[in-house]
Structure formats: C-alpha cells, structure tokens
Amino acid sequence: MTGVQPAAVLGQVEPAAAAGSASGVDFASVLGSVDQLQQMQSTSQQLAVQAVTGDLDDVHDYTVASAQSSLALELTATVRNKAVEAFTEIMRMQV
C-alpha cells in the first residue's frame, strides 16, 4: 500500500514517568494518539481526492485507510465517553 500507515493502537500508551501519577498514563502520549488519528484522517482524505480525480492506482488503498480512520475515530470517541463517565462518577462520589 502506498501512503497508508498501519493503524496505531490508541489504547497502548506508555506509563507515566512521574511516580506520583495516579492514572498511569502520560498525557503527552494521549495527545500523540490524537495526532495519529488526525494523520490517519488526513491520509484518508488525500486518498479519497486521489480516487475521485483518478490519480489513485489502487482503490483498495483508500478503502483500507478509510476503514482504519473510521475505526480509530470510534475507539477515540468510546475512550472519551468512558473518561467522561468516570469523571462524572468521581464528582458524584464527592458530593
């Protein structure tokens, strides 16, 4: 495949270097995962334009990139929703 990077596993982030971190996840690595998602979406959009203009040799490249981008976006949204639910639950416990 040309121009398509393998999908990064958004759930695999490096443990925080700071010993005092309660979450065990480095915030910078989470932001890096969001950047990878944006790169996947950008690649998918570029391949879509190439497919429409006829510059793309293999339409399967676009199909794979689009599926990866869609799946990564769904995973990111699910993780975000779970984080919001956890935050809401913590705030409910404090009241």
Rank of each mutant, 00 (worst) to 15 (best):
A83F: 14
L73G: 02
E89L: 09
R92F: 07
Q39I: 04
T78L: 08
Q46C: 02
S66R: 09
S66F: 06
A72N: 07
H60W: 08
A51K: 07
E14M: 14
D57Q: 13
S29R: 06
D55T: 03
M40V: 00
G24H: 04
V13I: 15
K82N: 11
G32M: 11
E74M: 02
A51S: 08
S21H: 04
A65T: 01
S42Y: 02
A16L: 02
V25N: 12
T63R: 10
S70V: 06
V9Y: 05
Q39L: 09
E89T: 09
V59E: 09
L37I: 10
Q68N: 10
L73W: 03
L75W: 03
Q68T: 07
S44W: 04
M91T: 13
G32Y: 07
R80A: 12
Q39T: 09
Y62L: 14
V84P: 04
S33Y: 01
S70T: 11
G54A: 06
T63P: 02
A51P: 01
S29N: 07
L56D: 06
A83S: 14
A8G: 06
A18S: 13
V25R: 15
S21P: 00
A16H: 05
E14L: 15
T43V: 15
S70H: 08
R80T: 12
T53V: 11
Q41F: 01
T63V: 14
G32S: 14
L37F: 10
Q68E: 13
Q50N: 05
E89F: 06
T43E: 14
G32L: 13
A48G: 01
Q41P: 03
V13D: 02
D61Y: 00
V30T: 04
Y62C: 02
A65N: 00
S29E: 08
T43I: 15
T78M: 01
I90F: 09
S69Y: 03
T2N: 11
V4I: 13
Q50A: 13
A48C: 04
G3V: 01
T53L: 11
V49F: 11
A86P: 02
A7M: 15
V64I: 15
E14F: 13
T43A: 13
M93W: 00
Y62V: 04
